[in-house]
Design a protein around this nucleic acid. Structure first.
Ligand SMILES: [Mn+2]
Ligand SMILES: [Mn+2]
Ligand SMILES: [Zn+2]
Ligand SMILES: [Zn+2]
Lengths: 140, 140
DNA sequence: AATGCTATTGCAAATCATTTGCAATAATAA
DNA sequence: TTATTATTGCAAATGATTTGCAATAGCATT
């Protein structure tokens, strides 16, 4: 009955030390970590852990809807625990910093657009790229 | 003075057969092509063209603001000529089809959010993943 | 039109993120 | 405890994109 074992067992999955650790890191990590960062942090506790396990675990947690995968304007992805409030992200092209902001999508996008096109929305994501205050200063 | 030579020369770039061809394919290709599809089509006219040239050209055209790079929930990117009207995309997880829709972002997102956070927006993208009418039928 | 300078190309090899095969190991049900 | 089988670590594979380099081709200048 360690962290999350309930949900895992419920889904017919086994509760392992590495899964608990990875989940913990994402939870405590202020969100928005990428696979490699999760790997680095996890290795401090569990030096034999492999990167494949990180990827496999992330994929599983995505399928169980425990986490969200974020697609910024980068070649790799970031992860955060399934959030309570609908929010999106400002990502700094200079330093990579991520700033959250609230923005409920209008019913026009959530209902009318899909209805008009016969499209069934699975998930929506707004990605905003630009420069944070600090990096704006640094650029001029 | 073939297609686009003006813009290229203006930017201190050379106007080559392969660049004109690639630009043409994107223009005529109904948009939303990926690098490999552009490569395949270009090869029909120019069999010795290399994939690196496609990638190098895409990057250049992005920098010259001639095209937009689209980040769907896929591991590779898609490209379209810089559009006139602000629009976004519904991408089908089943068949990959792309459906465009109009959706001007509210001033809340364009002005108030960045102001509040001291953030300077460079570009915004909404990506909506789901299932198109045809694929919905196929799934049940 | 011929020349020279250098950007651009094709090709092969490199890189980066992610995935996969497989034999060893560990979690759970019996 | 033991048996069953999911999960792991490791190495190798994959897919997308990038890079080094020598050959080629734009284009400004004679
Ligand atoms: Mn977040
Ligand atoms: Mn479009
Ligand atoms: Zn920044
Ligand atoms: Zn479809």
């Amino acid at each position: 009955m360690t962290t999350g074992s309930r949900k895992l067992n419920g889904a017919g999955k086994r509760s392992t030390r590495q899964r608990a650790l990875i989940m913990d890191i994402i939870r405590r990590g202020q969100g928005h970590l990428d696979a490699d960062e999760i790997f680095r942090r996890a290795r401090e506790k569990e030096p034999r852990l492999s990167l494949s396990t990180v990827y496999r675990t992330l994929q599983m947690m995505k399928e169980l809807d425990l986490i969200d995968e974020l697609h910024f304007t980068e070649s790799h992805h970031h992860y955060e625990v399934k959030p309570t409030r609908e929010h999106h992200h400002l990502v700094c092209l200079g330093c990579g910093r991520v700033i959250e902001f609230d923005y409920p999508l209008s019913s026009y996008l959530k209902k009318e657009v899909p209805e008009a096109k016969g499209f069934e929305i699975e998930e929506t994501e707004i990605s905003v790229a630009g420069y944070c205050a600090r990096c704006q200063r640094a650029r001029r």
